[in-house]
Amino acid sequence: MTPQITLSGARSSHTAFRPSRIVSWTLLFLGGLVMVTPILFMLSTSLKDASQVYDLKLIPASPSLDNYWTVLSDGRFLRWFLNSLVVAVAVTVSNVFFDSLVGYTLAKFRFRGRYVVFIAILSTLMIPTEMLVIPWYLMASTFGWIDSYWGIMFPGMMTAFGTFLMKQFFETVPDEFLEAARIDGLNEFTIWWRVAMPLVTPALSALAIFTFLGNWTAFFWPLIVTNSRELYTLPIGLSSFAVEQAIQWEMIMTGASLATIPTLLVFLLLQRYIVRGVMLAGLKG
């Protein structure tokens, strides 16, 4: 018998009124205010002109969207935006597939060398990217990947971060489910894809959000590997506002605000999967 999986909506079924709930809600809300204040300053600065940047008032004296028009009317901005989108989406898809496959294998298969493989992959988190940039560059230049999407993407197609995350979440999946599927005669790949994957949707969504975000804001490697401005990703493009000796902060803030929009959309789109709990039915010894 294949176990039944139902996804529950909101979590606690008991919503009785309790004073402690009000206290925790209020505290959470106040904490949220602290969290959001710096971001409000970012938005406020993006509405100021260069001469008001240093007045540091939260409400601009004469707010205007001029900075946004300046940034958006530069056709290259949209191009950079698109580049970032292509790179981030492609890398995210690859990571969601491979990281969860490897994570699943490390969590649910028993074989000699499993721990060694896990530690070896984990150890790749421990070398700062800065030291890998030169070997990667030589690799890219040998294979002609410089100044291409693939050149920007290839080092990040799989990450130890995602593998580790997925391994930990697959460990929470009860073995009984997989055994049941095996008895039904499914092959291992199908078991992973059809049975195990749906059980870790929250983690998959989290992985997708983080990978997208990480690539969306990546700066150092894309800068090294691209030459033409047409291939810049958004963060590199935005850094042209930080020129020698002088940084146009109102422009940086405008760009940063605009850059937050897609990541926010991805978050809003995927967060419901994180939040939607997994209720396991038919789980009786």
Partner: peptide, 21 residues
């Protein structure tokens, strides 16, 4: 005419020229 952001300009030149590019 090719241009790069100032912050990493030096790194960029050094790594490209080192690789013969």
């Amino acid at each position: 005419h090719t241009t790069f952001p100032y912050a990493e300009y030096q790194t960029k030149v050094a790594s490209a020229v080192t690789a013969g590019q």
